[in-house]
Design a protein around this nucleic acid. Structure first.
Length: 295
DNA sequence: CGTCTTTGACCGGCGC
DNA sequence: GCGCCGGTCAAAGACG
């Protein structure tokens, strides 16, 4: 793999992916590229300083673990919305443990006959904590922007669509997918950008607790590392099975590995690079992950 | 027959 | 309290 020491944010990576952490700035960046067919850029962080230059260095496993844990907490809280007032601190009731603990109570044994559209289990479907007065727990989210004619990008996992909703201020509906693995609680939302209909915004929520069991609708991805493992790569490098498109569909074109404006980094949020100079104004999916200040 | 999609209904959070 | 909206459920149908 190539060096990710000081990746130029504008550089297009030719490998499948690269993953870096900025321990000093509490920032992590993730770059993906699929041989020029489908470039993706993802950035997420913890205490991003608006004017802070990007810094990268390797982490030792211990530190990486800590960072990863911290990331989970902050992401959960942040993505649940600011909600400091009134709602008792919003993420406060999110257990202070790491996001894996979100599912610790039930995810491992989660029967979740998701594939069968089965009856409504009395149990809580993972990310949806239904205890009255308790907020829904959100998993860390990762958003990608890809330029593709197809909405549902292959990523090595099998997904079951469980909903579709029209998005306000967007002519395109948003689709909701759930990993078909009964033990996996990862969800995915796919939405076409209203600003640029040629781009698809994919948001992953949670981490897979399993490996890609082959490639059901295409080739086979033989990768050991995915978003699982607490999104905690063994080293500063992180491999992700390159995004794929359904082979029967026309290939997507490169969006870009667009650099994120330094000034745009703020808060503990996931930033979504967009192909257009200006950020989408729709309040849809982007509204969840792009801080208002960026819009 | 098993898996997946579609789609209307339902629920909860949040702003007013 | 009310209405809007996002997210999820689940029955029914499609498909291989």
């Amino acid at each position: 793999m190539e060096d990710t020491e000081n990746p130029d944010l504008g550089t297009e990576f030719t490998s499948e992916s690269s993953w870096t952490r900025g321990p000093d700035s509490d920032r992590a960046n993730c770059f993906f590229s699929n041989h020029g067919e489908n470039s993706i850029l993802c950035e997420f962080g913890w205490n991003l300083q608006p004017d802070e230059p990007a810094r990268f260095r390797d982490l030792d496993p211990v530190e990486a673990e800590e960072r990863s844990d911290l990331a989970g907490n902050l992401e959960i809280q942040q993505l649940q919305g600011p909600s400091p007032a009134g709602s008792g601190g919003g993420g406060a009731d999110v257990s202070t443990s790491n996001y894996p603990s979100v599912s610790s109570s039930s995810s491992e044994d989660l029967p979740d006959k998701s594939t069968g559209s089965g009856g409504k289990p009395p149990e809580i479907p993972s990310t949806k904590v239904k205890k009255k007065g308790q907020k829904r727990i959100r998993q860390p989210r990762f958003a990608f922007v890809t330029k593709s004619e197809v909405d549902h990008l292959e990523d090595g996992y099998r997904w079951r669509k469980y909903g579709q909703k029209a998005v306000k201020n967007s002519p395109f509906p948003r689709s909701y997918y759930r990993c078909t693995n009964s033990k996996c609680i990862v969800k995915k939302r796919v939405e076409r950008s209203s600003e640029d209909p040629t781009t698809v915004i994919t948001t992953y929520e949670g981490q897979h607790c399993h490996h890609t069991a082959g490639f059901p609708r295409g080739g086979i991805i033989s990768h050991e590392a995915t978003f699982s493992s607490h999104m905690n790569p063994p080293t500063s490098q992180f491999h992700y099975p390159g995004m794929r498109l359904p082979r029967e569909n026309p290939p997507s074109t490169v969006v870009q590995s667009q650099p994120l404006p330094v000034g745009a980094r703020e808060g503990n949020t996931v930033h979504v690079p967009t192909p257009t100079p200006q950020l989408p104004t729709d309040e849809g999916l982007l509204g969840d992950i792009v801080p208002p200040g960026m819009r």
